[in-house]
Write a protein that binds this DNA or RNA. Structure first.
Lengths: 163, 163
DNA sequence: TAAGATTGAACGCTCAATCTTG
DNA sequence: CAAGATTGAGCGTTCAATCTTA
């Protein structure tokens, strides 16, 4: 069945509504707290931080734009805008790609590495304080299972990465 | 203890990292899917829809700006910008508040009511398809418990609503 | 002065169009 | 034409400043 044509689909049950609204609220509160903390302590946005983390975890500390976008689940234009802004602040640099001249490499600069290293401990502490401190080990396992199940149906729905 | 001054806080364990990254990815994928579906099927953003739902659930279908912002967990300036844009499209209207002339009421228009009623079934169907269809009843209960626990620590941290 | 609300600037994200190379 | 990447317009969000009334 490709498409459910029923005019009035089942509404959410009360437990489902509760779970749904709380899930959205948790993400909203967390994102606001983490963004504020990151911005005021390090002058980085969460998007800046995410890019720096991915680059710093790469063995050569440099990647193609599209690979970076895939890892972050971003659209390529979002990545491009983000990287331009970060380039203007000296957090990343660029290099032509020898093999394929359509693309370019994004490289972590010394300033970018310093920024992510300075920001990481505070970020982890905030994630702990605002999230994991409230959760038991079993909660963490449940959350991972639930999240992976949802990612599973969404990815099955459309086979593109980051669709 | 007001503040942890330890220079190197505990990093996340592997299960915690997994749960954290999956949690962020689920929200990102869901938000992207739901936003696209809402936009293309109804011409509404998720923010438009959220406002319309809250207004349509109110007995008089009108509220003060600040009450609306509190319910959505939004800053008042965000609400103000959002409501101006929605007003320009005829989805909401305004009325002076008799008792307190500093504020104004936001009222759902007939067009706004029609829009939210048209959009709701598709939205619910998308939420089911991309999220609840992957979850068991116990998953839903776990998710609610986990989310509420996190909301609890974040709200305890700062007593303001939508801090 | 404080509370309710609006405004403008600056930044972030999405979409569609574009440019360059394969 | 397809793939890698950039650009510009338009909308969404935040922050700080402002305006009006209590």
């Amino acid at each position: 069945m490709l498409c459910d044509m029923s005019p009035t689909p089942r509404w959410l049950t009360d437990p489902e509504q509760h779970a749904w609204r709380s899930f959205l609220q948790v993400h909203g509160l967390l994102a606001a707290k983490l963004n504020r903390a990151m911005q005021s302590a390090s002058g980085l946005s969460l998007a800046d931080f995410a890019v720096l983390v991915v680059l710093s975890e790469h063995p050569e500390r440099r990647m193609r734009v599209l690979e970076l976008a895939r890892r972050l689940g971003w659209e390529k234009s979002r990545a491009s805008h983000q990287l331009r802004r970060m380039g203007e602040r000296g957090l990343v640099g660029r290099a032509r790609c020898g093999e394929d001249r359509r693309g370019s490499f994004i490289a972590l600069t010394d300033a970018g590495l310093a920024a992510v290293q300075a920001a990481a401990p505070m970020h982890v502490a905030e994630v702990r304080k605002n999230f994991f401190d409230a959760l038991s080990e079993r909660d963490v396992a449940h959350l991972a299972r639930i999240s992976d199940a949802a990612i599973g149906v969404m990815s099955a729905d459309c086979p593109e990465p980051a669709c």
